[in-house]
Write a protein that binds this DNA or RNA. Structure first.
Lengths: 222, 222
DNA sequence: CAGGTTTTCGCCTATCGGTCGAAAACGTGG
DNA sequence: CCACGTTTTCGACCGATAGGCGAAAACCTG
């Protein structure tokens, strides 16, 4: 029962980790989690565990990732971990305990056990689902400009995406909706940006799973 | 630790079930599975469990599906089940024990516990991955004609697919390769069909995840 | 050899994503 | 108050891909 909770913070995708005080792997960073109670399913359990670290109402999305069960994944008796992916929208800054901090997924500190592999899986799952679902709603604030959304997608995917394309693709799939509002331009001027929202807060798979590819990755095999 | 082992048999997608002899849920049909040993990970364990039912070398693909952990999913003390999807190529007919049989997924008998829901998940996973991976290799024999492959895909997806399109899409992705051989036409005549194989037996995700849609599902929202 | 059957292949069309550039709408500084 | 830079928005074009159709190929039977 572990969760990789991801959020786009300061322009980069980050994961919530806590620093272990005791052995094994003291002073290494690990994913939050804990044991399964008798009267809860795994999702209820991970939400309960996460409640010790963050306000669970701030979690915009939680889903199963995979089971990690290598007998040697932790020292001592074998522990089977059901790993989860959690997401927090970028506009909130959860209060976390003193042993807990956010770390950019590109520059993780020394991690405990197999938690780095779990983080990789979480990143990959997020990147995939951003392309063929409306999961972006879980990273974004309730209202946002296209360029803000572009930044979120770029941070989560790890490559630049075109604002033009992002808007067209999401709109054509019926996921994006203008609110009618605009934001004032910054001190350097510029046209005021229109505000948008995601149509539904529920996860939806968009059928023609097209892709937001990295720029200029042209051509496939014969 | 449970597995939904799927195979296309007699033109329909079927799942391997065994009939429970004892309570609870006696005489209902359930998925094969069993407990996790101390020195194995979950995948090794499910392969060991399945070995009691089929020759595991006949399994062309095994992957994790999800964890089912509702405290009430089975009577008595709670059991957390890690569910798997297994696939068997259509050209082999595994020898199964006398309490075990194949059932079309569209017409399941009375099933035990939450096993029907697990079957649904397995079907959905298979259908999805057929569209954006080369998972077809796990359903097909080493060599096959396009119309045979079309039948497999139709059975697994639940709707007709065009042979023309199937061949073009898979070829364009570099997944399909002609062997050079042909098969003799049947008694009713017809042009001899060319034989093909999948290029690689490794599971590969084809990046531009295009889709084999059901026929004439035109147009999306605005 | 005529007719039926099955497979194969080329063509046409619609749609979608990638890219570019122009136009819109703002602020600033002379 | 007007020229200039900045940022956003929008339309246009291009290439690639999937879906559909029908003709041609290649075989069998009577």
């Amino acid at each position: 029962m572990l969760a990789a909770v991801l959020q786009v913070r300061a322009g980069s995708l980050q994961v919530m980790l806590w620093e272990r005080a005791r052995e094994p792997h003291a002073h290494r960073w690990s994913l939050p989690g804990g044991g399964l109670g008798d009267d809860e399913d795994v999702e209820a359990s991970i939400r309960r565990q996460l409640a010790e670290k963050v306000d669970v109402r701030q979690l915009s999305h939680v889903e199963q990732l995979a089971v990690f069960s290598n007998p040697a994944r932790v020292p001592g008796p074998r522990v089977v971990a059901t790993a989860f992916l959690g997401l927090v929208p970028s506009h909130i800054d959860p209060v976390v305990p003193s042993d807990t901090a956010w770390h950019p997924v590109d520059a993780l500190p020394a991690t405990a056990f197999d938690h780095e592999a779990i983080c990789r899986r979480a990143r990959h799952r997020l990147a995939s689902k951003l392309s063929y679902t409306n999961l972006g709603f879980a990273l974004a604030p309730p209202e946002f400009t296209i360029s803000a959304l572009r930044s979120l997608y770029s941070a989560a995917l790890g490559y630049k995406v075109s604002a033009t394309n992002l808007q067209r693709v999401l709109s054509r799939r019926g996921l994006l909706e203008p609110t009618g509002g605009t934001v004032q331009p910054g001190p350097s001027g510029g046209r005021p940006a229109a505000l948008f929202r995601f149509v539904s807060g529920q996860m939806r798979v968009t059928d023609p799973f097209a892709v937001l590819r990295p720029p200029s990755t042209r051509s496939l095999g014969s």
